[in-house]
Design a binder for these strands. Structure first.
Lengths: 225, 225
DNA sequence: CGAGCTCTTCAGCAGACCTTCAGCCTGGAC
DNA sequence: GTCCAGGCTGAAGGTCTGCTGAAGAGCTCG
């Protein structure tokens, strides 16, 4: 899951990045509205956390412009303390939820998760493909009920593939959603991880759930292989 | 367990904070109704202690507004001496219990505990995972019936883990639910406490109930290890 | 006021994990 | 069959996460 944080206060931006990264999100930070719009046009984010008070282009405008462009990425707006009057306006311009500063990180996470969930229109709590299941809450991966031990990075990749079951996902996309923005390694690292995932979730079970689509990346077999 | 106290009398607020903190709760204090509503919207409290007589927005209104927002956090209302007439109204607006001033702290604790218990829809009075039990009322931790001596902080952590059995709980989450709002230490302190908890509840019994989930925190084994 | 307990910080360590790289394999074009 | 780009894999190193013991600060109680 890749999140864009548009926030000019360095301290806030840093702590958001740290916290969200710790939660397993890949995070990009933009320092003003203009930069935010540009990032959003370049990368397909899973959600955007948008401060209202921004240099150059303020939050409302960023939000409005995105929607005008037909970009419906969920937006969580951050407003200053006394944001009562602004609430209506914020939601009007197309934000999906808003949060007043200062806020508790747990709250932000909860809201963010609820946005991400809502988007996929009632995505089930556990991701599945045949007898392969992944539970984000317990961080457990199972095949045929048997628990499989995976590393954090393997978990993230599998989570992404399972939430796009049946679609061919390019290595580039995986790099962008699972790794941090400033990661500059090549696509080979994805191959390495897919390889090690296969060794854990497919080979021991004689399955083939992660299918290589030459030139187009990988695809999770809806039947689980 | 994190409690919000909405109370304008400084002395009362202080003593509630002191007493509840001593019992291992994390406590936030709001000085008036408006502030209380704001806190409640930002943080996911386990319960709210709400004075009736408040500046700006009184207790009834706070209560009503919370329920209107679909916030069903248990509320314990504090009313003035002659509160007979108010009782019905208080419960009507959505408070879960009420208490007339002056009251005994032990009584308040008992009511609060009963609220917290009730909330989880008949959550058992004692939290359990296999033969490991924790009784919030008596502050006792037992394994296989044998009493184990734990410090307040250790108790809080164990309580949180036991009330989220099976889920991976982030260190950040523990920091936010077990420590006070303004604590700014790093996650290492959680590691230290988990270490000392393990030395008390796991190692002497040859068990492993608190499982480390690399990159995602800790998880209480439902079977108790 | 001192003893004892708890809380918190810190630095060092071990092991898990991440990343890179070189060499090999495979599928498709010709 | 040959060639090539794309994909796979095992090994090696460096980095990071989590664990631990120690030590000082703060608090409570006698």
């Amino acid at each position: 899951m890749r999140i864009l944080v548009v926030e000019d206060e360095v301290a806030m931006a840093q702590s958001l990045r740290a916290g969200l990264t710790a939660e397993g999100f890949a995070v990009d930070v933009a320092g003003d509205g203009e930069e935010g719009l540009w990032y959003a046009s370049e990368v397909d984010y899973d959600a955007i956390i948008l401060d209202l008070m921004l240099p150059k282009v303020n939050g409302y405008k960023v939000c409005a412009q995105l929607r005008e462009r037909d970009d419906w990425t969920p937006i969580l707006m951050l407003t200053a303390k006394d944001g009562h009057l602004d609430e209506a306006e914020g939601l009007d311009t197309g934000a999906d939820d808003y949060l007043t500063k200062p806020f508790n990180f747990v709250v932000l996470l909860a809201r963010l998760r609820s946005l991400l969930r809502r988007r996929g229109s009632a995505r089930p709590a556990t991701l599945e493909a045949g007898d392969l299941t992944l539970d984000p809450a317990t961080h457990e991966v199972r095949r045929d009920g048997r628990l499989i031990d995976v590393t954090p990075r393997e978990f993230s990749i599998l989570e992404y593939l399972l939430s796009h079951v049946g679609e061919a996902v390019t290595k580039q996309t995986l790099l962008e959603h699972v790794w941090d923005f400033d990661f500059d390694g090549g696509p080979n690292i994805v191959e390495v991880y897919v390889g090690s995932l296969r060794k854990k979730i497919d080979i021991p079970f004689g399955r083939q759930s992660i299918v290589t689509v030459r030139g187009a990346g990988y695809k999770m077999d809806p039947s689980g292989g």
